[in-house]
Design a protein around this nucleic acid. Sequence first.
DNA 1: GACATATATATAAGCGCTTATGTAATGTGT
DNA 2: ACACATTACATAAGCGCTTATATATATGTC
Lengths: 185, 185
Amino acid sequence: MMPGLGTQLRHLIELLDGAVEEAYASAGLRYRPRYTPVMRALIACEPCTIGQIAEAAKITQPAATQTVALMIKEGLLDSEPGLVDGRQRLIRLSPRGRAMLPRLRECWKVTQMAGESLDASLPRPLAQSLGEAIAALEVESFGDRMAKARSRLSVAESPSGRSAARKHTAGASKGAAKKKRTNDA
Amino acid sequence: MMPGLGTQLRHLIELLDGAVEEAYASAGLRYRPRYTPVMRALIACEPCTIGQIAEAAKITQPAATQTVALMIKEGLLDSEPGLVDGRQRLIRLSPRGRAMLPRLRECWKVTQMAGESLDASLPRPLAQSLGEAIAALEVESFGDRMAKARSRLSVAESPSGRSAARKHTAGASKGAAKKKRTNDA
DNA sequence: GACATATATATAAGCGCTTATGTAATGTGT
DNA sequence: ACACATTACATAAGCGCTTATATATATGTC
């Protein structure tokens, strides 16, 4: 029995990220994979506000706040209140964080090469497959596809007109989905 | 900048599962996607122990314990202590849970059709792409690929013999990875 | 300058999992 | 029959996110 897409997705995340986390550890770095998007944001622009980091890392603002808090506790980042706007916090690499950069870059290169090795043993690059799926769902969301399937199904099974119809207007649901896992599908 | 495989994977999970969860809700069902593997296990074999459910659903035993606890609280399942082995708990569908089955099956069919619709707009089925990636990582783990990349890299950048080598024996790491996310890669 | 409103960040709670560990009930060897 | 390990399950804590909401500063209006 097909384990479900969600199961496969989670499994893949674990397979990949477990290895990456281990690699940092065995390189003697106290560093979590979730730090990387923040690091990259700061390399690109320093200092950076929490909001900018969230945007660059494509995570929500609370997630950025949390990750930055962790990284400050680890001594990788420094923060100072924004001088022009007191609500902002200006985040910078600490000396310790900056000193870690060369070793991090080496890890990132290794990770990238491993990714290429993986892609080489696949019919097509994994990131591409995922990107295509995401793009397809942006064109027509999974919810919309379900709505269409529902109407197709109710027509098929009741040539007259049974219950399950539930007129979904079948168009692109505007205020669309935003929630959790996939054990179905 | 490539958001990283992990980000894409998580994003996909949300896209898919948000829609599925919404579908249950709008069908008037108090039912979470994570219940489905448990339901399927019970359809296949009833009564079922926690351990059997965990195995069938391909999750850890504590995850099974938790999900079953939720489902009991929702009134979908009943549990009785095992009569031959007092450590076991025998899990069954409650009447309420059993009554939900027809509507669930309908939801599952719709979900499956939506999945087919998605696959139809992709160069190849998503589950297949994921399966191939997982299979490739079973042949050679991401950690192993990283180790190889590391040695390749250190040879390249130091024709003599610099520091970063870190003899990783480069073979298949037996006591291999088992941890978390992918923001790198 | 007092006011409502908007914006930047922080905090709390939840999700579905995981690992690590605790607690019983069962089986084993002597 | 007793200490001992093994097994089935439960509990606790953590992961990296999310949504919802609170707090503090800024800004615009009168």
